[in-house]
Simulated assay, not measured.
Amino acid sequence: MSFNVYILYSSTRDRYCIGHTGDDLQERLRKNNSDHKGFTGKTGDWVIVYTEVCSTKTAAYQCEREIKAWKSRKKIELLISSRL
């Protein structure tokens, strides 16, 4: 089983959301776009702008934490543009 680190973008909020999942990415995106109380709830316009495959859940979690620790929009956007 593989795990994915992902970055979502909402044009309504002009924000990024970083996470990881072992689920199908499209199913995870559907859940993020559903009306719920979490960070991604209410806007419903999230799109996947970056993915990275990891072999273990631990590796995916570590990668997610590393990206979140940057606290830099420019660095995140540089990572996204490097995959285009």
Score class of each variant (00 low, 15 high):
69 A>V: 00
63 C>N: 12
29 L>F: 09
32 N>A: 14
63 C>S: 14
57 K>E: 15
55 S>Y: 09
22 G>H: 10
63 C>G: 10
43 T>I: 04
69 A>P: 00
60 A>V: 04
47 V>D: 10
74 K>M: 09
24 D>V: 05
37 K>Q: 06
59 A>V: 00
28 R>A: 02
63 C>K: 15
25 L>D: 00
76 I>H: 05
70 W>P: 02
46 W>I: 00
58 T>V: 14
63 C>W: 03
49 V>R: 09
70 W>F: 06
63 C>T: 13
62 Q>T: 15
79 L>W: 01
51 T>H: 06
70 W>Q: 05
83 R>F: 02
51 T>M: 04
26 Q>I: 11
18 I>P: 00
69 A>G: 08
55 S>E: 15
70 W>S: 05
55 S>F: 12
72 S>C: 12
52 E>Y: 06
40 T>H: 00
83 R>C: 04
23 D>G: 11
17 C>R: 12
56 T>D: 07
61 Y>M: 14
55 S>H: 14
59 A>D: 11
21 T>D: 02
32 N>E: 12
37 K>R: 13
47 V>Y: 07
43 T>F: 10
28 R>W: 00
19 G>S: 04
33 N>W: 04
79 L>M: 04
53 V>G: 01
78 L>F: 01
51 T>G: 06
65 R>Y: 03
21 T>R: 00
22 G>Y: 07
30 R>S: 15
51 T>A: 05
17 C>E: 13
18 I>E: 01
35 D>G: 00
70 W>C: 06
62 Q>D: 15
52 E>K: 09
55 S>C: 13
58 T>Y: 12
71 K>I: 07
46 W>K: 02
49 V>S: 05
68 K>R: 14
57 K>H: 15
68 K>A: 06
21 T>M: 03
74 K>S: 13
61 Y>V: 07
70 W>R: 04
39 F>G: 03
53 V>T: 12
53 V>N: 07
47 V>T: 15
30 R>I: 08
60 A>R: 04
45 D>H: 05
64 E>S: 07
82 S>E: 07
75 K>L: 12
83 R>T: 06
45 D>E: 07
21 T>L: 02
46 W>D: 01
58 T>I: 13
78 L>P: 00
80 I>W: 03
80 I>H: 02
48 I>T: 08
40 T>D: 02
37 K>E: 12
27 E>P: 02
62 Q>S: 15
67 I>C: 03
53 V>K: 07
21 T>C: 04
80 I>M: 05
81 S>A: 13
59 A>P: 03
50 Y>W: 08
72 S>H: 11
34 S>N: 06
